[in-house]
Amino acid sequence: MSRIAPLEPPYAADVQSHFDRIMRGAPPLVLFRVMAGHPRAWEKFRGGSLLDRGPLSLRAREIVIDRTCALNSCEYEWGVHVTAFAAAAELTEAQVRATVCEKADADCWSAAERDLIAAVDALHARATLDEAEFAALSAHYDDDQILEIILLCGFYRSVSYLANALALPLEATAARFPR
């Protein structure tokens, strides 16, 4: 059970409308139900505006999110994203596994994806990119995309903190970390 109780239905109309927009008809995730029970936290969470697609391809976005969650040992959010988006992002089984178990230079990634994962790893480890890492990222992504990558890393690190520190139970239908 979560350390902070999630909301239970029926939900207030404004909360239900947010759930409907985010979940597109699926039941709301425990994470969303916990956050929505605390208006200030919910507003800040949604205010990040990173729950939409943004300027990255779905594939690049999911690589960033999956790798960030894996680096933060957040099986909850990693599993939610792999289940919901891996197929649409055309991530192979080997690539999904690599987000958790492989280094950035794994053979299953393109050169651009290796540079993307190396940037995620650097941001996680040092909260910055050195000149070579930034140059490598800039070879494949424009300024808007680079800003999105950095913001996604920070946002999903925060999501990982929430899911891990609140001991959110894994979603029943979500993927599990490869062993």
Rank of each mutant, 00 (worst) to 15 (best):
M1P: 15
A5R: 15
P6E: 05
E8F: 10
P10T: 00
P10K: 01
A12I: 01
A12D: 14
D14C: 01
D14T: 11
V15K: 04
Q16C: 02
S17F: 01
G25N: 08
G25A: 06
P28S: 01
L29Y: 07
F32M: 15
V34A: 10
H38Q: 14
P39Y: 03
A41L: 12
A41S: 12
W42M: 05
E43S: 11
K44F: 12
F45L: 12
L51S: 10
D52V: 10
G54I: 01
L56P: 04
S57T: 15
S57P: 11
L58H: 03
L58A: 09
R61W: 02
R61C: 05
R61H: 09
I65C: 07
C69V: 05
C69E: 04
L71N: 06
N72C: 08
N72V: 02
N72E: 06
S73N: 14
Y76C: 04
W78T: 03
G79H: 07
V82L: 08
V82M: 12
V82F: 12
F85L: 13
F85E: 04
A87M: 13
A87C: 15
A88D: 15
A94P: 07
V96Y: 10
V96T: 13
R97T: 11
A98K: 13
T99D: 01
V100I: 12
C101G: 12
E102Y: 12
D105S: 09
D107V: 12
W109G: 08
A112K: 02
E113K: 09
D115V: 01
D115P: 00
D115Y: 02
A118E: 07
A119G: 03
A119L: 03
V120L: 00
D121V: 00
D121S: 00
L123N: 04
E131C: 08
E131A: 15
E133P: 08
A135D: 13
A136F: 01
A136K: 00
H140Y: 09
Y141D: 00
Y141F: 08
Y141W: 02
D142M: 00
D144S: 13
Q145T: 04
I146W: 05
L147C: 14
L147D: 14
E148C: 09
I149G: 01
L152P: 10
F155S: 10
Y156V: 08
S158L: 15
S160V: 06
A163T: 13
P169K: 11
P169Y: 11
L170M: 14
A174Y: 02
A175F: 07
F177S: 02
P178S: 03
P178M: 05
